[in-house]
Amino acid sequence: MSDSALHNPPLDRPHRPRPWHNLPFWGLLPTWVLMGFALLVPVVIVAAVSVATRGTHGGFTWDFNLASYRQILFNEGWTGEMEFTPQYLMIIARTFVLAGATTLICLIFAVPVAYFIARQTAGTKAVLIYLVTLPFWVSMILRVYAWMIILGRGGPLPRFLESFGLPPGTSFMFNDFATLTAMVYTYMPLMVLPVFASIEKLDVTLIEAAHDLYANRWTTVRKVILPLTAPGIVSGAILVFVPSLGAVLEPTLMGGGKQMMMGSLIQLQFGGGRNWPFGAAIAMTLMCFVVIFLIFTAHRAARKGDVA
């Protein structure tokens, strides 16, 4: 990486500190090593595999080939000729709708919760934040199984509603509602915490000032609270949206796996499909979308920051 050059000035300039005296370089070295090995190297490998040629029974050979990217849009039809196949685009679109819905619902619930917590006394606040993070102490798969029991046939929720006249044997499992419930539940803390952090920092006197200037409650929320908590909301949205795109567990276990998501599509290509380059190409496509989303939100946040 070019950064080592940045922190390693040529030795023929004696007035500059020597490399082993360069504290920022050594101080940041663990970061660069971590970023390099945990982030950059895996992404480069996936990118390289996505343009490799598939092996006969899975695996791949290092021959440059763009077939995997073409396959996202064009495939051989059942009659044998190449045709435009929207199936992968549909899976991508569905994944985005699901991730977007999860983010939106999390946001709607998280803002009031975070606001409520932020307005408590220090002791209560600590306890409530602890409670929000409590689910993270239990394995994710266990929490999803718990929801399967709650929503499933004979579970607490159907039983409760059956006492109000719902036909017995009802199950709320294996549909989009079940998937969304588990997704929202799983990612909710990731939204609450950053939103809480920014609401906590909010200067209460500004709200009072808004009221003094005859702003009603809604205007105060719109013109004062939301712009000032926007950074927290944006980072919460990113923290929820990005992992939601790769969700495999919830759609498979809760949704019944009847409709593929990008995560399960990638899994199929590396497993039963035995087409690693195609799996890698879909993963790269997913990553490109994520990067576009991040640039877009960062841009918007920056613009909002200017206005505020």
């Binding site: 992968y88 199929l268 499909g273």
Partner: peptide, 17 residues
Amino acid sequence: SPAAQDLVTRVWTQLLQ
């Protein structure tokens, strides 16, 4: 064969698309 395996994968992807 890879050709047959691709048909199986295609069936499965279209089924769950």
